[in-house]
């Protein structure tokens, strides 16, 4: 089975409005799928549905063959929320040790993920004193603990410089090469080119579900930003 996440006919109503409208897509294993779209289009809501913390109106969300949110999935999914979800009054290492013990991750995992997100030197620093980008990476590190088969990241590269962004995208692809399915949201179009597959979203609906190359070919656009605009105006 190569499909990790299977979503069909998903509808979500928030605050009385339908913010996810009849969405259908799949996320394959061993690849990075990008979820792109303008602010407020429903990316976070969709990701919350995939990790099973969003009340949904109707539709099917299946992860690794189980309904999203099933207890059996809880140590097989890594999730990083859009706003950093780490305890501000703990050090980075203390945060990681806590989440590692909940996930029953091996001890060495804390050092591994610190290394992966480039926070080795900040392990004993309180999260409150971290810079914005460092906080985001501390939060990302938690999602990498254990050996998650599905990794859901909500705007993991916001506020990072090009060098760090490059490092993180290389890391995402390493994780995918090792077999994980990554679903990564972003609203920066230049990151889209780094994804194996793209889901373009607008106003709660999926506009396109394709590879970056196919999207460019289909729209005849030079870059993905133009391709996206072409699809929106169609």
């Amino acid at each position: 089975m190569s499909t990790a996440v299977d979503v069909g006919g998903l509808r979500v109503v928030r605050g009385g409005r339908e913010v996810v409208r009849d969405v259908t897509f799949e996320v394959p294993r061993g690849s990075v799928t990008g979820l792109l779209g303008p602010s407020g289009c429903g990316k976070t809501t969709l990701l919350r549905a995939v990790v099973g913390v969003q009340v949904v109106a109707s539709g099917r969300v299946t992860v690794l063959g189980h309904p999203a949110g099933s207890p059996v999935l809880r140590d097989r999914i890594g999730y990083s929320t859009q706003s950093p979800s780490v305890y501000a009054d703990l050090t980075v290492a203390e945060n990681l040790r806590y989440f590692a013990s909940i996930l029953r991750a091996p001890r060495g995992d804390v050092d591994r993920v610190l290394e992966e997100v480039g926070l080795k030197g900040n392990a004993d620093q309180l999260v409150t004193t971290l810079s914005g980008g460092e906080k985001g990476r501390a939060s990302l590190a938690v999602a990498l603990l254990g050996k998650p088969e599905v990794i859901v990241l909500d705007e993991p590269t916001v506020g990072l410089d090009p060098v760090l962004r490059e490092d993180l995208w290389l890391l995402f692809h390493r994780l995918a090469d090792a077999g994980a399915a990554l679903l990564v949201s972003s609203h920066v179009m230049d990151e889209a080119a780094r994804c194996d597959r793209l889901l373009l979203m607008r106003e709660g609906a999926i506009l396109a579900d394709d590879t970056p190359d196919a999207l460019r070919a289909r729209t005849g656009a030079q870059d993905l930003e133009q391709a996206f605009l072409a699809l929106v105006r169609r």
Partner: peptide, 10 residues
């Protein structure tokens, strides 16, 4: 969001 994340964990 820490509680939201905890709720996805075992």
């Amino acid at each position: 969001a820490t509680l939201e994340r905890l709720m996805t964990m075992p």
